[in-house]
Simulated scan of single mutants.
Amino acid sequence: MKKSPAPAFLRPVVLTFCGLLLLPGPASAEAARPWWQPTSAFVQAGAAEHANAAVLGLTWDWSWRRDLGWGRFTGYWEVSFGRWASDAGGSSAHAWVTQVGITPVLRLYPGGGDTGWFGELGIGANLLLPIYRSDDKRFSTTFNFGDHLAVGRRFGERGAHEVTLRLQHFSNAGIKEPNPGEDFLQLRYGYRF
């Protein structure tokens, strides 16, 4: 049986993701910080139509940044570990899913600098074990993309605190059907070391 080619909309997503992977790794501005040491940690809670999620994670800042007349672009790597609870099986039973992900994230600080308001976007790879299901949705793969848009604010001494509101979508981008996807609204608190 002949395989059909990947959907046309998937090519830009894959090219964008591969381009992000070519960006430099963790920041080397702090010579005392080893490359493997994270720059921040976060906790995150989210809700979808029929599921809730709790996520912990670490981030590694990039040394890459671009200052434009209207703002500063920078980024980071995010590694996350989460648990989802869905309403699969009715109100008395819950399906638990473990999420493990890695995501390159681009961040924009309007007006420049590394503190204050920011916007960000990311597209990453996630494993959902076992396959996610709820009363009305069933994913077909354990591998899924997680893309997000977010707005947040960095504040406090050294800009050590962050609060972010995120909209995140998980799906397999048409690798296999069914592919209903799931959308989470998430609130995140991050602390920079």
Rank of each mutant, 00 (worst) to 15 (best):
E120H: 00
L165E: 00
Y76H: 13
G124D: 04
S63R: 07
F17G: 10
L23F: 08
A47F: 11
V43F: 14
T74E: 07
G25D: 07
P24M: 04
R72Y: 02
E78V: 07
I131H: 10
N126L: 04
G122F: 05
L21R: 11
F193D: 04
Y189F: 11
T103C: 12
A93I: 02
T103L: 10
W117F: 15
G119R: 04
A95M: 01
V105K: 01
S92M: 09
G146Y: 00
R192S: 13
K176R: 11
W84D: 10
T141P: 00
S4A: 15
D61I: 02
L128M: 08
Q186G: 01
S40W: 13
L68F: 06
G113Y: 04
T74P: 01
R33I: 07
G57P: 09
F143G: 06
Y191L: 12
F139L: 03
T115C: 12
A8C: 10
V79N: 08
V151G: 11
W84G: 05
N52E: 15
G124R: 07
D136R: 14
R188V: 13
P38W: 15
G181E: 05
G89S: 03
A31H: 11
I102L: 14
F143Y: 08
A173Q: 14
F193N: 08
S4D: 13
N126W: 05
G119C: 11
L128I: 02
A41D: 00
T98M: 02
T59D: 03
H161A: 05
G124W: 05
G112S: 14
G46D: 09
G111R: 03
V151I: 13
L20P: 00
P7V: 12
D135Q: 09
S86P: 03
G71T: 07
S86C: 03
D61Y: 05
K3W: 12
G82I: 08
N179K: 02
K2Y: 12
E162Y: 08
V105G: 00
L15A: 15
T142K: 00
R66S: 10
F118Y: 12
G101Y: 09
A45H: 01
K176H: 10
L68R: 03
D67V: 01
V100Y: 14
A47C: 10
Q44Y: 06
I102S: 09
A27D: 13
E120P: 00
L56F: 11
Y189H: 06
M1N: 12
G112M: 13
L127H: 02
P180S: 02
Y189N: 07
L15I: 15
R65C: 11
H148Q: 14
A31D: 13
Y109C: 06
H169M: 03
A31Q: 13
G19L: 07
A8W: 12
L23M: 11
F81N: 13
D87V: 00
L127Q: 04
A173L: 13
P5F: 10
D67F: 01
H50Q: 15
S171A: 09
G46L: 10
P130Y: 06
E120G: 08
W77P: 10
D114M: 15
L128E: 02
L108Y: 14
V79G: 14
S140E: 01
G89I: 02
T141V: 00
F145D: 14
L149Q: 09
E157Q: 12
M1Y: 13
L23T: 05
G112E: 13
Q168V: 13
H94Q: 15
I123V: 15
T164K: 03
R138Y: 01
R166A: 11
T39S: 15
P7M: 09
